[in-house]
């Protein structure tokens, strides 16, 4: 099958699943209420999926590996720490904690700044060894998570568990404003890299070869990191951590696509990611009666795929 056919099938799947999520039980009387609830959720899922699928492919290309994705850099922990720190220093009643829109914006901005700061210091010291960078990011993630819990503990040892649960984002309490903000942010960030798609094709040949072919590889890496930071921050603030989704869809997209072109691979990855997230959410709602969360489900499936990928002997 040609790549355009595959993309068409994915689009059809996306539309079909969207209808399954939105339509059931709608009547002329209740549609305003239900749509007001379901459409933001649908948008949030598509934006999150798209953001993760897009950043994972490009990040893997410039880092020349198929195992690491921006999600491994500990963004979820960063989000957690920001929430805990706001709570700790400003108190639960303060504007930045109570107002969800303001909280979302501040979280994303701080995450992007923090991520870039990390990447800069780490890169400044270690040159081009990306595995090192990602390991350092992962450990920073662990540090942030324990620091966040530490702060919560100090705020109130007796309410620790309830505070801990409040800190996680989830699709079920999404609101329209946040989704729209996230969507604009993601589209702008992703759009910035669109003109570089052909450079990503070259970047796949490795740093040396792309420099030889006239691509400013270091600048491309920097741009990719900035965009990944924005996309993953937005996605994390919307649903929380989904470590394995990006890894899974980016690899599947490379296997599905016949072409090596990043325009094609990225499109497939974005669509596939949204479709999977949507299917996961539907499975959780319809068949498991919210007996689990979509993030746990996806991490489970993605994690198994990851082990298979390793066993098939991919070069690391």
């Amino acid at each position: 099958m040609r790549d355009s056919g595959k993309i068409a099938i994915l689009i059809a799947l996306l539309i079909g699943l969207s209808l399954v999520l939105v339509l059931p039980g709608l009547t002329p009387e209740n549609y305003e209420f239900f749509l007001g609830q379901r459409l933001p959720k649908l948008l949030a899922i598509i934006v999150t999926g798209g953001a993760i699928g897009y950043s994972a492919v490009l990040f893997q290309t410039v880092t020349h590996n198929r195992i690491l994705t921006p999600a491994t850099l500990g963004f979820d922990a960063m989000y957690l720490l920001i929430q805990a720190a706001l709570f700790f220093f400003l108190g639960g009643a303060s504007f930045l904690v109570a107002d969800r829109n303001a909280n979302f914006l501040v979280s994303v901005v701080v995450m992007v700044v923090l991520a870039l700061f990390l990447l800069r210091t780490v890169f400044g010291r270690s040159g081009h060894d990306l595995v090192f960078v990602v390991l350092v990011g992962t450990i920073f993630g662990q540090l942030f998570r324990t620091l966040a819990y530490f702060l919560l503990m100090i705020i109130s040892p007796s309410e620790f568990t309830s505070l801990q649960n409040k800190m996680f984002a989830s699709f079920s309490n999404i609101n329209t404003n946040i989704v729209l903000i996230a969507m604009v942010m993601c589209i702008a960030a992703a759009g910035w890299l669109l003109r570089d798609m052909r450079k990503f094709d070259v970047a796949g040949l490795g740093r040396e070869q792309s420099v030889s072919l006239g691509v400013d590889h270091d600048a491309l890496v920097k741009r990719t990191f900035i965009v990944s930071a924005i996309l993953v921050s937005a996605a994390t603030a919307l649903v929380g951590p989904i470590a394995f989704l990006g890894l899974m869809v980016a690899n599947l997209a490379r296997e599905i696509a016949t072409s090596y072109r990043h325009t094609v691979i990225t499109a497939i990855s974005v669509l596939l990611s949204s479709v999977m997230l949507l299917a996961g959410q539907l499975a959780v709602e319809r068949y498991m009666n919210f007996g689990t969360t979509v993030t746990v489900l996806i991490n489970f499936v993605g994690g198994v795929y990851f082990v298979i990928l390793l066993l098939r002997g991919n070069r690391l």
Partner: peptide, 16 residues
């Protein structure tokens, strides 16, 4: 890049 090209010793490519 139109004047000087270079080929390094390791040219493993992660693309089809």
């Amino acid at each position: 890049a139109k004047r000087i090209s270079i080929l390094k010793q390791s040219n493993f490519v992660n693309m089809r």
